[in-house]
Computed example of a mutant assay.
Amino acid sequence: MSLKFRRVALVGKYAESATGTTTDSTREVIADIGHFLREQGCEVSLAEHTWLSTGLTEFSALDVAAIGSDCDLAVVAGGDGTMLGIGRQLARYGTPLIGINQGRLGFMTDIPLGEYRETLALMLAGAYEEDHRTLMHGRVFREGVSVFEAFAMNDVVVNRGAAASMVELRVDVDGHFVANHRADGIIIATPTGSTAYALSAGGPLLHPLVPAWVLVPIAPHTLSNRPIVLADPVEISIEIVAGKDASASFDMQSITSLQHGDRIVVRRSEFRVRFLHPRGWSYFDTLREKLHWNEGGV
Results as ranks from 00 to 15, higher is better:
residue 71 C to G: 05
residue 73 L to I: 06
residue 74 A to S: 03
residue 75 V to R: 00
residue 75 V to P: 00
residue 76 V to N: 04
residue 77 A to N: 06
residue 78 G to P: 02
residue 78 G to T: 01
residue 78 G to Q: 01
residue 80 D to T: 09
residue 82 T to V: 07
residue 83 M to I: 06
residue 83 M to G: 00
residue 83 M to C: 01
residue 83 M to Q: 03
residue 85 G to D: 14
residue 86 I to L: 11
residue 87 G to F: 03
residue 91 A to W: 01
residue 91 A to H: 02
residue 91 A to T: 03
residue 93 Y to L: 07
residue 95 T to Y: 00
residue 96 P to A: 03
residue 96 P to F: 01
residue 97 L to G: 00
residue 97 L to K: 00
residue 98 I to Y: 00
residue 99 G to N: 06
residue 100 I to W: 09
residue 101 N to Y: 06
residue 101 N to A: 10
residue 102 Q to T: 08
residue 102 Q to S: 15
residue 103 G to R: 07
residue 104 R to G: 05
residue 106 G to M: 08
residue 106 G to E: 06
residue 107 F to K: 05
residue 108 M to T: 04
residue 108 M to L: 15
residue 109 T to D: 07
residue 109 T to C: 13
residue 109 T to S: 13
residue 110 D to E: 15
residue 110 D to A: 05
residue 110 D to R: 01
residue 111 I to A: 03
residue 111 I to N: 02
residue 112 P to F: 05
residue 112 P to Y: 06
residue 113 L to S: 06
residue 113 L to H: 13
residue 113 L to M: 13
residue 114 G to Y: 04
residue 114 G to C: 05
residue 116 Y to Q: 04
residue 116 Y to I: 02
residue 116 Y to L: 06
residue 118 E to W: 05
residue 120 L to W: 06
residue 121 A to D: 12
residue 122 L to R: 15
residue 122 L to Q: 15
residue 123 M to C: 02
residue 123 M to K: 01
residue 127 A to D: 14
residue 128 Y to S: 01
residue 128 Y to G: 00
residue 129 E to S: 12
residue 130 E to I: 08
residue 131 D to M: 07
residue 132 H to C: 10
residue 136 M to T: 12
residue 136 M to V: 12
residue 136 M to I: 13
residue 136 M to Y: 11
residue 137 H to K: 14
residue 137 H to F: 13
residue 138 G to L: 09
residue 140 V to A: 12
residue 140 V to K: 12
residue 141 F to T: 11
residue 141 F to D: 12
residue 141 F to W: 13
residue 144 G to T: 10
residue 145 V to T: 14
residue 146 S to Q: 14
residue 146 S to E: 15
residue 147 V to S: 11
residue 147 V to W: 08
residue 149 E to H: 14
residue 149 E to R: 14
residue 151 F to G: 15
residue 152 A to I: 04
residue 152 A to M: 05
residue 152 A to V: 04
residue 153 M to Y: 12
residue 153 M to R: 10
residue 154 N to D: 11
residue 155 D to Y: 11
residue 156 V to N: 11
residue 156 V to Y: 10
